[in-house]
Lab assay of single mutants.
Amino acid sequence: TDVTFHVNGRNLHLKGADEELLRRIEELIRRGADIEELEKAVKEWEK
């Protein structure tokens, strides 16, 4: 799945995201995470 999140005026584009990653990103956004936290979560998922 390709999806782009718009967070605090910045874009986080995910290519090939699975349901697990999407749920994790949505949860972080609900908690008020900043873009750096979201990018870190994506990097951890990519490993």
Results as ranks from 00 to 15, higher is better:
Arg31Ile: 07
Leu22Asn: 01
Lys43His: 11
Gly16Met: 06
Glu37Arg: 10
Glu27Trp: 15
Glu26Leu: 15
Glu46Ile: 13
Asn8Gly: 08
Arg23Asn: 08
Glu27Met: 15
Glu26Val: 15
Lys47Val: 11
Ala41His: 11
Asn11His: 15
Gly9Thr: 01
Glu26Phe: 15
Arg31Val: 06
Ala41Tyr: 15
Gly32Tyr: 03
Leu38Glu: 00
Lys15Trp: 07
Asp18Leu: 02
Val3Ser: 02
Ile29Ala: 03
Leu12Cys: 01
Thr4Pro: 01
Glu20Asn: 14
Trp45Arg: 04
Thr1Ala: 11
Glu46Val: 13
Asp34Met: 08
Arg24Tyr: 11
Lys43Trp: 14
Asp2Ser: 05
Lys43Pro: 02
Glu37Pro: 02
Lys15Gln: 06
Arg23Phe: 10
Glu27Asp: 11
Asp2Trp: 12
Asp2Glu: 08
Val3Thr: 04
Ile25Gly: 00
Asp2Ala: 03
Asn8Cys: 12
Arg10Ala: 11
Leu22Val: 14
Asn11Ala: 15
Glu27Cys: 15
Glu19Pro: 15
Arg10Trp: 13
Lys40Ser: 11
Leu28Ser: 04
Lys43Met: 11
Gly32Ala: 03
Lys43Val: 11
His6Asp: 10
His6Met: 10
Lys47Asp: 10
Ala33Cys: 11
Ala33Arg: 06
Ile35Tyr: 15
Ala41Val: 12
Ile25His: 00
Arg30Ser: 10
Glu36Met: 06
Glu44Arg: 09
His13Glu: 06
His13Tyr: 13
Arg24Gln: 09
Lys43Arg: 12
Lys15Met: 06
Gly16Lys: 08
Glu39Ser: 06
Leu38Lys: 00
Glu19Leu: 11
Glu44Val: 12
Arg24Val: 07
Thr4Met: 07
Leu14Gln: 00
Arg23Glu: 05
Lys47Cys: 07
Thr1Ile: 15
Arg23Ser: 08
Glu39Arg: 06
Glu44Gly: 09
Leu22Lys: 05
Gly9Asn: 03
Glu44Leu: 14
Asp34Ala: 07
Arg10Val: 14
Arg10Pro: 01
Leu28Val: 01
Thr1Met: 13
Glu20Gln: 14
Arg23Trp: 11
Trp45Thr: 04
Asp34Gly: 09
Thr1Gln: 12
Glu44Trp: 11
Lys43Glu: 11
Asp34Val: 08
Ile29Gly: 01
Leu14His: 00
Arg10Glu: 12
His13Cys: 07
Arg10Lys: 13
Ala33Pro: 02
Leu28Gln: 04
Ala41Ile: 13
Gly32Leu: 04
Arg24Asp: 05
His13Ser: 08
Ala41Thr: 11
Glu37Thr: 10
Ile35Glu: 01
Thr4Gln: 05
Thr1Trp: 14
Asp34Thr: 09
Lys47Ile: 12
Glu39His: 07
Glu37Ser: 08
Leu22Glu: 01
Leu28Thr: 01
Trp45Phe: 08
Lys47Trp: 12
Leu28Gly: 03
Lys40Glu: 13
Lys40Leu: 14
Glu19Thr: 13
Glu20Ser: 13
Val7Trp: 04
Leu38Ile: 06
Trp45Asn: 05
Leu12Trp: 14
Glu19Val: 13
Gly16Thr: 06
Val42Lys: 03
Phe5Gln: 04
Glu19His: 12
Gly32Arg: 04
Asp34Leu: 07
Arg30Leu: 09
Ile29Ser: 02
Ala17Met: 03
Ala41Glu: 13
Val7Pro: 03
Asp34Ser: 07
Lys40Tyr: 12
Asp18Ser: 15
Asp2Val: 08
Asp18Phe: 02
Asn8Glu: 04
Trp45Val: 04
Glu36His: 08
Arg24Thr: 10
Gly9Cys: 04
Lys40Gln: 12
Gly32Ile: 02
Ile35Val: 06
Leu22Arg: 05
Phe5Val: 14
Lys15Gly: 02
Lys15Ile: 09
Leu12Asn: 00
Thr1Phe: 15
Gly16Ala: 07
Val3Phe: 15
Glu44His: 11
Leu12Pro: 00
Trp45Cys: 03
Asn11Arg: 10
Ala17Phe: 05
Val42Gly: 02
Ala33Gly: 04
Val3Tyr: 15
Leu21Tyr: 01
Val42Trp: 03
